[in-house]
Amino acid sequence: MNTLTAVEALEQRLGDPFDPANPHGFDALLAAAEAHRPQDPEPWRVPSGAPEPVLHALRAVCRRSPTLAGTPGTGAADEALAVGACAGALDSALRITLRHLRGRRLYGAAAADLPVLRSVLSGAFADLLLCDALTTLAVRGTDALPDRPDATAHAVTAFVPRVLQGALDRLSVVMGSRFYIREGDHASFQRLLHETQRALFGAGRRTPERDPAAPFPLDALLAAPAVTGLYDPALLAAAPGRALNGRARRTPQPTGSAHERLYADLVDRHEANLALDLTRRPLPDRP
């Protein structure tokens, strides 16, 4: 309960990011970034507290600007918070992409009706859930795999950043030229992508001790009771980012019923203004 109230207060203070009149909204943030104008840090301040409420508060900031979530400390817990917070940027990127596709007609049909574009959306959504499950696990300090105590840390420092960035990159392909321009309705997409990339891979980030691409027991982690309670394992299993654990280089998108359920859930949450992570917390966004 405490989790939601802290983050809800922050969300209310920062308001609907899609509202053009909101001084903390996407348009205002873009204008400030273009003018190299720093933000007043006060409204963005995340109150200290227990790790999980802080994660969600940071995520509320990252929904709008990963840069404003600040540089984390160097401890393992700080790392999980910093990486997990970036799922907020993917949440926004998914919403922007969905809005764009719904407003665009291609080859005589609504772009959002093209199956290939839908599967990219459902895949990015599954990746968000996967990343949330892993970072939540790390932030809670849950020992999901007692015989592999380093698995969660490796997931968070080496795996989750690449899954989040990969999902953003695939969404950028779907956004096409609208991704590439820094003005207009969807210009915040490129800013979020760029800021997330810097937050996850910029200089000064903790560098993984060993090969970041080295396989780790992802399936065992996801099968741990601490994770299966968080979300439907069948949908986590459809996350394209799972392919980044190991040799595979292409990320197959969700298909069949997993895809259908993910897409329906994504659209439901978008229309009901609920967060796309495991909390489904209400957001101040207008439909």
Partner: peptide
């Protein structure tokens, strides 16, 4: 080439390729 650049960035960015390096 996009994938090649992305993987190099993920590997070397934190070491400084996206900054002072």
């Amino acid at each position: 080439i996009d994938a090649l650049i992305a993987r190099l960035l993920h590997l070397l960015g934190p070491h400084g390729l996206l900054g002072p390096g």
